[in-house]
Design a protein around this nucleic acid. Structure first.
Length: 518
RNA sequence: GGCCCCAUCGUCUAGCGGUCUAGGACACCGGCCUUUCACGCCGGCAACACGGGUUCGAGUCCCGUUGGGGUCACCA
């Protein structure tokens, strides 16, 4: 039985790179009919774990990455919080101590630091002298009488080779003598990450450890711990990290300002920002950041599009397949085809995937996605529920592929605002309504439209075309002025769809108003 | 700095010794369509980091150089 895991720290946000790692773990488990486990690597010091965990769980749920065991769903290996497994960790430390694979160390931090500094100044690799090591009770008592406190360190081998079989990178070798005697337990008895992680992975029956490559150099010490404890080793797969747009540095949530200098990233961000502001979502870098999954949920991306994009960030099936349904992903995924080199996050490509999926969605499926945005923006206030739904449906239909994310429905405020509150784009007004001939033409077009029957897209078009034929004008001579008059904007939906959605009374009122404002 | 990893168009990638005058996708640049915008369609630009080997033959194998990255915590 394949069992994989993703083990986030409750940081309050879900990093896009973390999602990719989780996705690969999830796909691998699902493909093999195995299980995907969510374990929370919290520590005792952390406060508000529940609160900081929520965005992470929400993110996974939104994406449809489900876990078989973990927070909220429980499971036979509970608890799934690292902080609650401390007794297991301590027992493991005791065992390593008994087997002579770890020792109590009474060095003071500054003493270790001094050794390290000395090694550095002599330009030789640092190896701890083990001067304050205590392997017997007598030695320990001696140091303790001197007022010292012990941590537990791994007693690492000082010769030989550690060979790691990696499912992504084949064999990788490390020399044991390069490894430090890492601390695995603090003086207060709390255990450190590497020890805890290895013990938990074993206890949870993890068969495949699939994680980011930054853990590759940590693997020897984990193997040492696992073997010391008599565990059978899991298979390892180290994924490349997700890099910044246009660079090979690791993508980081803290560098938003820097990324905003990248044109595509900036565009992605600013598009989202407009929507977030309209719905009153917070927009600090902490919560609103394209490096964090929450961003895409807020702006109204489709989970399938994000997942599909992330899948192809470091993995490919062949030389042409780009589109995957969830089932196809599960069927096609393989660790062997994961790339070794880091992959840059490309906002433009993500955007293309999103657009492709949104276009493919039937209007009926878009409606429930769009409606909440109109409601949150407060535009539905005073409207009957059915009327809002009808209007949003009409806009969705008429807008077609102009709406790329669900939040883009908020580009069409002109259909929800009162006639006397419609604002006009200043440039468009000057260009289309100010010219002397505009008023007369608009006046005539108004007359032609008033008699349109029925007042739908086809009816208004027929009426307007009759009018053009009579006057010898071209379509271009009137539609621009008409659009500005009824929407206040230079760009928008097809003009006849626009007229139909607004309705006869609204259209005539708005034309009259625009003429008055000249 | 030590150790480890990585290296094909701007970006994501295909390529596992000959089928590569290197394929696809996104972006970009032209053009067509068109009532604006968007979509769509057609076309174009664009890469094997460098140097040595091995081989009849190298993007593909080996070594080195360069470059990039990761990691060296009583963080996770």
């Amino acid at each position: 039985m394949v069992r994989t895991r993703f083990a986030p720290s409750p940081t309050g946000y879900l990093h896009i790179g973390g999602v990719r790692t989780a996705l690969f773990n999830w796909l691998f488990a699902r493909q093999h009919g195995g299980q995907f486990i969510l374990r929370i690597d919290d520590t005792d010091q952390q406060r508000n774990v529940t609160e900081a965990l929520q965005p992470i769980l929400d993110g996974f749920r939104w994406l449809g990455i489900d876990w078989d065991e973990g927070p909220d769903v429980g499971g036979p290996h509970a608890p799934y919080f690292q902080s609650q497994r401390a007794d297991r960790h301590r027992a493991a430390v005791e065992q390593l101590l008994r087997r002579g694979l770890a020792y109590r160390d009474y060095a003071r931090p500054e003493e270790i630091q001094a050794e390290r500094a000395a090694a550095e100044s002599e330009k030789r690799p640092f190896t701890y002298s083990r001067r304050w090591m205590a392997q017997t009770a007598a030695e320990a008592a001696q140091w303790e009488n001197a007022g010292r406190q012990a941590v537990v360190r791994l007693k690492m081998p000082r010769c030989g080779t550690c060979r790691i079989r990696d499912l992504v990178r084949d064999d990788v070798e490390f020399q044991w003598d390069q490894e430090q005697d890492h601390v695995i337990q603090r003086a207060d008895g709390s255990c450190l990450y590497h020890l805890a992680s290895v013990v938990d992975d074993f206890d949870l029956g993890i068969t495949h450890v699939i994680r980011a490559v930054e853990h590759l150099s940590n693997t020897p010490r984990q193997i040492f711990i696992a073997e010391g404890l008599g565990y059978t080793l899991p298979a390892y797969a180290h994924l490349p990290y997700v890099a910044e747009p246009g660079s090979s540095n690791k993508l980081s949530k803290r560098k938003l300002d820097k990324y905003l200098k990248h044109p595509d990233f900036k565009q992605l961000y600013e598009h989202g920002l407009r929507i977030a502001q309209l719905v009153g979502h917070g927009t600090t870098a902490e919560t609103f950041n394209p490096v964090i999954v929450d961003f895409y949920q807020t702006v109204g991306y489709l989970p399938a599009a994000l997942l599909n994009y992330l899948l192809l960030l470091g993995w490919s099936l062949d030389d042409k397949t780009e589109q995957f349904t969830r089932d196809e992903m599960i069927r096609s995924f393989s660790l062997e085809r994961v790339n070794k080199a880091p992959a840059s996050f490309d906002p433009a490509k993500l955007w293309a995937f999103q657009q492709r999926d949104m276009v493919a969605l039937p209007t009926a499926a878009k409606l429930p996605l769009f409606l909440p945005y109109v409601q949150r923006a407060g535009w539905a206030a005073g409207w009957e529920t059915a009327a809002v739904a009808r209007t949003v449906g009409q806009i969705a239909q008429a807008a077609g592929d102009r709406i790329k994310t669900a939040g883009d429905i908020l580009d069409y405020g002109e259909f929800f605002c009162a006639d006397n509150e419609l604002s006009y784009d200043a440039k468009a007004f000057e260009k289309r309504l100010r010219p002397p001939e505009a008023a007369a033409r608009l006046q005539q077009a108004r007359a032609a439209l008033t008699s349109a029957e029925p007042f739908d897209a086809a009816g208004t078009e027929a009426a307007l075309r009759r009018f053009l034929e009579e006057t010898g004008l071209q379509m271009g001579d009137i539609v621009h002025a008409l659009r500005v008059a009824v929407t206040g904007k230079a760009v928008g939906l097809g003009i006849f769809d626009t007229l139909a959605i607004l309705g006869r009374e609204c259209v005539t009122r708005r034309i009259d108003r625009s003429l008055q404002m000249r």
